[in-house]
Write a protein that binds this DNA or RNA. Structure first.
Length: 350
DNA sequence: TACCCGTGGAC
DNA sequence: TGTCCAAGGGT
């Protein structure tokens, strides 16, 4: 592996960062709680998507204690639409643990912080370095992309051992006195300059240190194994409305995909015959329902293909996991994005 | 290790 | 339209 002039690299990187760093809401104060929340929100999520959620979240839960004392449904509602909802549940649980076990102070040791729910190798390093300036590696996708190019490392970045290799490189390279800025600068460089496609090498402050640039292979890196294609699941959903203008919704199971979210009843099928049998539980015939639209919701590992139907009935009796609600009460509940699209059309079209 | 877990934007 | 993927973690 090539030898890096560490001091020169640090200087070039940090000088650029001092001048070019973005003005982001979680960079305004050095509150470990705010930094923690931002890091969880930023997991697999773009900065632009996080910003409005971060402002709203901080307004609702300004301090760690505010969040610790909130109801889970309230926390999930603030997370609705951001995705990966276990992040919200884990953060909520972890914040309670910090309140109870650490006197409300976010711990500053690697062992303690990694023991918190939802805090893995990256997030532990990010909080330690950004909040406490501890020289710990915070290796995310950006950092692996930047370093794979600097050193022309062709290891598959999807593998755990590869991340550990990059963590060791960061330990050897990090600016000890400016650990916070160094880690953030590496990520900032990955986000703004050393992008996945068409990296802006002509604008790169560390281009002179970059082996991939020298060899012209920057577009080949990093190496990442292809993921399996997502499988499609075909669903038929029914929006049931009674003569009072109320709607039937049901709660998803406590675990798994979109746990505890609300949805309109649906059946996993493409066949009208099976759908007809499904509708019989409300005494409805297939001829009574009206097809409204098709909604596609793509997850990382599967795709929902939803045909949406509506029907109006005289009376609706909710089962144990169901509710019959007015539109305004419906909007208080947490729905998957695909079903939010239905909720938005309720009253006018549905 | 491989799979599960969301969403919206870029290309 | 399809594909990829973004400051990952849990199991």
């Amino acid at each position: 592996m090539k030898v890096l002039d560490t001091i020169s690299f640090q200087k070039d990187l940090l000088s650029w960062y001092d001048y070019e760093k973005r003005d982001l809401p979680w960079r305004k104060e050095n509150d470990p709680y705010r930094i923690w929340v931002s890091e969880i929100m930023l997991q697999q999520t773009k900065v632009a998507a996080v910003i409005p959620y971060f402002y709203n979240f901080m307004e609702k839960f300004p301090t760690l204690l505010d969040l610790a004392e909130a109801e889970e449904d309230e926390v999930l509602k603030a997370w609705e639409g951001l995705g990966y909802y276990s992040r919200a549940r884990n953060l909520h649980a972890a914040v309670k643990e910090v309140r109870d076990q650490y006197g409300g102070i976010v711990p500053d040791t690697e062992k303690e912080i990694k023991s918190l729910k939802g805090v893995g190798p990256y997030t532990a390093g990010a909080i330690l370095s950004i909040a406490y300036n501890v020289p710990a590696p915070a290796v995310d996708g950006n950092v692996m992309r930047v370093l794979s190019r600097i050193f022309t490392i062709y290891d598959d970045i999807g593998k755990d051992t590869t991340r550990k290799k990059f963590e060791q490189i960061v330990r050897d390279t990090i600016a000890e006195e400016r650990a916070s800025d160094f880690n953030q600068a590496m990520m900032e460089l990955g986000a703004l300059i050393c992008t996945p496609t068409s990296p802006a090498c002509l604008l790169c402050p560390v281009a002179s240190h970059c082996a991939a640039r020298e060899e012209g292979v920057q577009e080949m890196l990093p190496v990442k194994a292809k993921k399996k294609a997502a499988r499609s699941v075909f669903l038929k959903a029914i929006v049931l409305k009674n003569t009072q203008g109320e709607y039937l919704v049901e709660r998803r199971p406590d675990t798994g995909l979109l746990a505890k979210f609300w949805q309109f009843p649906f059946l996993e099928t493409e066949k009208d015959g099976e759908f007809a049998a499904f509708l019989q539980q409300w005494g409805i015939d297939l001829e009574q329902v009206e097809y409204k639209e098709h909604i596609r919701q793509a997850f990382t590992h599967l795709v929902w293909e939803i045909d949406v139907y509506t029907v109006e009935v005289n009376h609706l009796t909710p089962a144990e996991n169901q509710q019959v609600l007015t539109p305004s009460l419906l909007k208080e509940l947490v729905f998957p994005v695909s079903h939010q699209k239905i909720v938005e059309k309720i009253e006018e079209e549905y």
